[in-house]
Design a protein around this nucleic acid. Structure first.
Lengths: 338, 338
DNA sequence: CCTGGCACTCTGTCCGCCCGAGTGCCAGCC
DNA sequence: GGCTGGCACTCGGGCGGACAGAGTGCCAGG
């Protein structure tokens, strides 16, 4: 519907507004972008864009600012993803390579992403439900006390204490450990319940209580939702925005503390490719004045978790998307190597 | 030096200012606290307090606000620690008891502390250096690849991958595992280096490379400073303060992201008992307008880590100190049980 | 040593004013 | 038909003066 020039005008408005943080007027537009037409013409285009809901003016006789719908069009049609420069890529890789364990990988990723985008970074730990089991370890800590350690292919380690209904010998423990691992090692988490279903039957009657305790703890660990963890960083960047911000910063900080909300948010984002949610597109009210750029990452072809950034709707979308994509790619590599 | 009444005046000023967030004048003071003297008398006292540096006026002809020195006197001499009410205690206990693992304990503690104090909560993970070893586990993941899992008495689990210089058989692994545990289980981390010093000598020449690799990884894990982790929560509470805040909130958020800084801060606090650092008493500049209340906690008599809150110097010290102390006590209990 | 009174000093706010940026519209031109 | 220049209009933000209120310091008297 919109003529080519009008789209250019919208693009120019978004770019200028993102740069200056101030409503942009027709005259300034013609000066900074060579559109080849006069301010008056641009004014007509702006009026049309406003009618369509792509831009709005905060007050009569102020410049225009993009609406959520305007940003949406910008992201979908007018802007690409700005690739990282080779030096930036090298810096990312170097920074991530020094990590010693999964916690460190995630921590570094958060830090990196926050620095690159100068926004709030959110990184989800590789999800248990999409990973495979590398190893299950059982440790006898006391006659009737066993510790279960679960190690995933993404390097994540979970442990649980189990109180046994009856004393459980070292031999039985070794037996159980061996049987468990032969069945589940290398298998996907979702398959585990089926694979261990009948395992208790192989044991003596007096050990079955403990075996089922171990199995049920294992299954619990696999499904436990609250084990979907994530890490946040760069919250200080929130203060870079708007003088008006005390009002908008509050709900954002609250949202960031609600990891459950964030996980849901990431979960709703598309599974493949990058997702950008702009302003009111975010279901959670506290984030209605922010945009969330997220993407899945994983050690192989498949995504095991997501990462992204939260920033004002007035953000540099191409640059942010480029950084998010690049970081996700390198984190995937690092995970595959470890 | 200061007469009893002047101390009372200071106490009243602190209490009122904490409550109202506005400079407090002589008239308001006499109305809200029955000091038994007239405003004029209070004015004289205030002048004296100002001379001594306990209070200050933001502008001529405004009320007074306490200085850092004033808060210091208040905390040291004029205020006690407000104990939690029995219902509050029960709530704390209930909330902490549902935790499934150490991460969960820490996460719940942060949340709880932030809610109770309505400020930013900081909880350090039980420090490795003061813990004892519960168990060391070695897992063979590939012919020349071993995973080291270290379990502490506080429930903390650390894992490291080790690439072996030569293939390492299951038998050797079991041998090493048994020897390691018999030497270090139950011992303090600081003793471990001495205890495993000569362990490699017991092995065949071709296995020694791997054994030393394992040992050095173990020792690294023990000393690695960056393993001093902590968790933060309640940052949204920062927005409750001051209209002027955009300026002061920024450095605080930055400080909170610098876990290294926070760990140093906690480390500097006294080892036993509660420490209150007020305003400029904090070495880190970004926290010069905040106070930090911290205390050690631990599963036994000894502290294994610290926790605390960061808030404006204008905080409710008795209440905050009460909450911090109570939470530390219950976390200690929970850790002892697990 | 306390008290009441008084003059003084600020701050915060409200009001009116003006300026400038930006708009919408219209008539004219290509 | 679409672009352009011109023009009148609107509104927000900044500036300055006036004002009220809170709070102070000081002093003389009890």
């Amino acid at each position: 519907m919109l003529s080519e020039r009008r789209l250019q005008v919208l693009r120019a408005i978004v770019q200028d507004y993102v740069g200056t943080e101030e409503p942009v007027g027709s005259k300034a537009l013609t000066e900074r972008h060579n559109l080849g037409v006069s301010p008056a013409t641009v004014r007509n285009d702006m009026a049309a864009l406003e009618d369509e809901g792509y831009i709005a003016q905060p007050h009569t006789s102020a410049g225009r600012i993009p609406t959520d719908k305007g940003y949406r069009l910008f992201v979908d049609k007018l802007a690409g993803v700005k690739p990282m420069s080779p030096p930036e890529r090298r810096a990312i890789q170097n920074f991530l390579e020094g990590a010693v364990d999964l916690d460190d990988v995630v921590a570094r990723t958060v830090r990196l992403l926050a620095q690159l985008t100068r926004q709030v970074a959110v990184v989800q730990y590789p999800s248990l439900t999409r990973s495979t089991v590398r190893h299950v370890e059982l440790l006898s800590l006391a006659p009737a006390r066993v510790m279960l350690v679960l190690i995933t292919d993404t390097g994540r380690v979970e442990q649980r204490m189990i109180d046994c209904p009856a004393p459980f010998g070292e031999a039985s423990l070794a037996d159980l450990r061996a049987r468990l691992n032969s069945r589940v090692a290398g298998r996907r988490f979702t398959d585990v319940p089926r694979l261990v279903e009948d395992l208790a039957e192989a044991f003596d009657i007096e050990d079955r209580g403990t075996v089922s305790a171990v199995l049920s703890t294992l299954l619990e660990t696999l499904v436990e939702e609250n084990e979907e963890r994530l890490m946040i960083g760069g919250t200080a960047n929130l203060t870079r925005f708007g003088h008006d911000f005390p009002l908008t910063i509050r709900p954002v900080l609250e949202a960031l503390e609600e990891h459950v909300v964030l996980l849901k948010l990431l979960g709703e984002a598309g599974d493949s490719g990058m997702t950008v949610r702009i302003g009111h597109e975010n279901a959670y009210e506290g984030l209605n004045s922010t945009s969330v750029v997220s993407v899945g990452y994983g050690s192989g072809g498949e995504a095991v978790a997501k990462l992204g950034v939260v920033g004002p709707t007035r953000m540099d979308y191409p640059g942010t998307m480029g950084a998010v994509r690049a970081v996700a790619r390198y984190v995937g590599q690092i995970l595959a190597e470890s």
